[in-house]
Amino acid sequence: MTYPIELTINGEFIKLDIPANWRLIDVLRRDLSMTGTHEGCGEGDCGACTVLVNGQAVSSCLMLAVEANGCEIQTIEGLADGDILHPIQEAFIEVGAIQCGFCTPGMIMTSKALLDKHADPSEEVIRRTLAGNLCRCTGYEKIVSAVKAVSSKLLNQTDSIAE
């Protein structure tokens, strides 16, 4: 049997009928062909599938799609504004935080949830927040630097507006 759900994904309103055992990631990847959200472990251990649900970072492999009924979902595909990349995406590219890139969408989404909440997180907070996003290539250094770079950029922007 299937269950009707309504989701807003990257601003687009979507109605679907899905089986109860479909996870949010299945809807994204299989129903909607949104393959930017990656499945690295399926058990919430690696963070590659991180999306934002009502603004909160969530492992989309550990949430049933029916549980997301009525929720607002943001994925990596919705982050850029057309050709204009989100500052976090820019920073990941500029700083060199991307190697094989498989963990990247999840890293960026977790970083976004953090920076949406705290404009100026300490390195300790950045590291703790990203602890569930595993990366085998980079040793994390450049990823942490990228998040720091965005936060100082965002702060400067806020400062200049305030001035």
Partner: peptide, 12 residues
């Protein structure tokens, strides 16, 4: 609570 899992899991 903070020592557990990761933020994605703690949120749920």
């Amino acid at each position: 609570a903070l020592s557990m899992a990761c933020v994605q899991v703690r949120n749920r």
